[in-house]
Design a protein around this nucleic acid. Structure first.
Lengths: 215, 215
DNA sequence: AGTTTCATCACCCAATCATGTGATATTACC
DNA sequence: GGTAATATCACATGATTGGGTGATGAAACT
């Protein structure tokens, strides 16, 4: 593979850490640090001008933090691979970062070698993250819960079917048609569904169904 | 940490690889191979009897493959950490494995040291996977689209507020109370919300609201 | 000063929904 | 053979919702 260096921009408010990263990247073949900034205030301009391949982004920074910066980058230049780089491993930030399009999530205690590896991974279309963060990401997958914490409302097959149709926005009449049963039967089923879910309206049933992945 | 060895069961049809794994695990402190089988035919019985901490599971096996085995394990003993172990990196299998509750996904070309590390991670509540697989997992996250395919229905503040209350199962009357406005005003807002979301019922609005964002 | 947007309220009418009560047929299980 | 669970249908009644039409005041912008 004849490839030019990976162009990297760093956002990090701690001067020492910023310096360490500069030294590390400068001393490593295949990596080129093309910018290092204390916060994301100028992120739009910087990204457009510098056109990095990978951005290493601290989260906790004064004035303009990393999540804000991430979002701006993803709007302006979605092809840039942004790797979050932080001391904290809290669900909220991970979730928001992932949702906003970060490809990786590393902790600051990551050893230098792994850090370089991660940058390479990110540049090659991977999503570097620690296994503990990966686990948190898996838990965000709605399908996961569908299988594990399965619905214990003990809906019958028919009831599940009808609840599904409800969630998709069908009226009683439409459901009756699609199931080839009378509207009164639909009513009867829905009454039982409400009983089992402990709700008293379509809206509640639908919200509950979606949130608890019954559907 | 004074911890006993991690108890491992391996499912792998290739005798050579199975042997290599046995040797590797036997020679590593903190790991104990308590079973190795050619396929998942007897998985239920084996898991119940052996009570492993971690299962290393090949996918492609004759007779009873790893995905089937995974599902059985997750039903019988959901606390067991199953790491898939395969040559292929195709989306379909990854997706199914993750959805079925696998915590890790490793390729057979993983070096032994990393393999041991991954088993430890899995045992400690992590989700070991290569960064390329992590990327594929991220792409499964529906929330991803939340930002990319930005859904700006341009609801006003009041409309968002009311939609939120709707999603939580409030009736028009309850919303009127909570917002201290007349029920007719609530109707008026909701009519506008339906217009903007292109829906014609609470149910549809709620489903759309939950699936696409806002709430 | 004129226009647009927003939040508010009112009235009407038809459609839909929530709830109750009760009936019948099928299947499965003891 | 009896019981329980399920799926089916019917009738009734009152509440809620969806859609239409229109009005008023306040704020924002031109």
């Amino acid at each position: 593979m004849t490839q030019t260096s990976i162009k990297i921009v760093v956002y990090e408010d701690n001067p020492d850490l910023r310096e360490s990263l500069s030294v590390l990247l400068a001393g490593s073949i295949g990596f080129e640090l093309i910018g290092a900034f204390v916060n994301c205030e100028q992120v739009a301009k910087q990204i457009v001008e510098l056109k990095p391949d990978v951005v290493l982004m601290d989260i906790d920074m004064p004035v303009a933090n990393g999540l804000k910066g991430l979002k701006i980058i993803k709007q302006l230049a979605p092809q840039v691979n942004v790797v979050m780089f932080t001391v904290f491993e809290d669900n909220e930030n991970i979730f928001e970062a992932i949702c906003s399009g970060a490809v990786g999530y590393l902790l600051k205690r990551t050893p230098p070698v792994k850090l370089l590896e991660a940058i390479q991974d990110a540049n090659n279309g991977g999503a570097p993250m620690t296994s503990s963060i990966a686990r948190k990401v898996l838990q965000m997958l709605p399908i996961q819960q569908k299988v594990t914490e399965n619905n214990d409302y003990k809906l019958t097959e028919r009831e599940s079917e009808i609840l599904n149709l409800l969630v998709k926005g069908n009226s009683y009449k439409m459901i009756a048609d699609k199931c080839s049963i009378s509207i009164d039967t639909v009513r009867s089923h829905i009454k039982k569904i409400y009983d089992k879910l402990h709700v008293h309206s379509q809206t509640e049933a639908v919200a509950k169904a979606i949130h608890e992945r019954i559907v």
